[in-house]
Write a protein that binds this DNA or RNA. Structure first.
Lengths: 185, 185
DNA sequence: GTTGCCTATGCAACTCGTTGCATAGCAGGA
DNA sequence: TCCTGCTATGCAACGAGTTGCATAGGCAAC
């Protein structure tokens, strides 16, 4: 389980409440690790019980109170230990690939609009990444270690989206080519 | 849930027992959808109860008997319906990216050997993909629709591995560059 | 001749992750 | 005025997925 570690990293970068963490997981961190607010609250309680993080009640006016968490030393030590462990092989879940192979037993043309939707959403995400790169890592700046590492992760996202766009074009060309043929029945 | 659909596709391509499916999920299909034998057996029982697949007991000598499953019409219809539904956005789980950002709060150099291990395993997978492509889709052949679709999925795997290798080189260069600097404490 | 691996299926217990719902005050617009 | 939406946390129930173990015959190596 790496949700705990992803939360620790996020709290080290910036302390925050469960709600704030949930929003971060919808944005930057969510690009490589997703979580709902339910999961986050549950894991936060466990981590606090284990002493990995410390909570501070913060009263707000005009808004509900919140509990702001920050990483504690045992949490930092746990993260350090995890960093030195070999990571499990990633389990891939690529639903679109299943659909593409499934199309051989149905009408391949029925997939075209679905693939086009995916293409659009990946193009939009690439644009967001590129805008974020311009904003956070402008050319000529002198980044520190944290920024360098955040940047190399972002570059990975950018290259992933570029690769995916090119592949989806390949998929679309293949589906169009097969459009005339009868499906296998 | 797409495990049912991945199993249906696999059984349409070739009928087989739970055990055989588990091995396929360790090989080709497992590249874009993973499953343990436990999951597979449980889902097979549910699918048989729902009439999606049909089972036939096959006695073997020198080996335990097996139940060979094949896709039935209701299963084929369910697959067809699923193909026409929009797919949920993929939830990405990229543990290495979490580690890279975590390295900002520890020693970045400690990650180098881990990244190198990943690089090797991605290089080995790319080599396997390329060998499989040569074997199954030799230049000059006239593939049918099923092979075309399998090939485009494989090309996606190949491009993904190439992209990942290039990115891991970028990560390694970044980690080496940061090697001299003190971690943030 | 015992140890370990392969085929083949399955139970039990657990953790992970999602979905629906609840509360509760405040802000802004129709 | 009512409706929608945001901040903030949480319960309950379910489904997905993993891990450990069990059985049971055959095969090959040491």
């Amino acid at each position: 389980m790496a949700l705990e570690h992803a939360i620790l990293v996020s709290l080290l970068e910036q302390p925050g409440s469960g709600y704030e963490l949930a929003r971060r997981f919808d944005r930057s961190i969510g690009r490589f690790w997703t979580a709902t607010h339910q999961q986050i609250y549950r894991v936060l309680r466990r981590m606090e019980a284990d002493g990995w993080i410390a909570a501070e009640e913060v009263a707000q006016d005009g808004r509900p109170d919140k509990k702001v968490y920050s990483a504690a030393d045992p949490g930092r030590a746990a993260l350090s230990g995890w960093l030195r462990e070999p990571v499990e092989p990633e389990t891939v879940r690529h639903e679109l690939a299943v659909k593409i192979r499934a199309a051989a037993f149905d009408d391949p043309a029925a997939l075209i609009s679905e693939v086009e939707r995916h293409r659009e959403s990946h193009a939009a995400l690439l644009a967001r990444y590129l805008a974020g790169e311009q904003r956070d890592f402008p050319a000529g700046s002198a980044p520190d270690a944290r920024q360098e590492l955040q940047h190399v992760v972002l570059r990975g996202g950018i290259e992933y989206e570029r690769m995916t766009l090119a592949w989806l074009d390949d998929v679309l060309a293949t589906l169009h080519r097969l459009g005339g043929r009868r499906p296998h029945h």
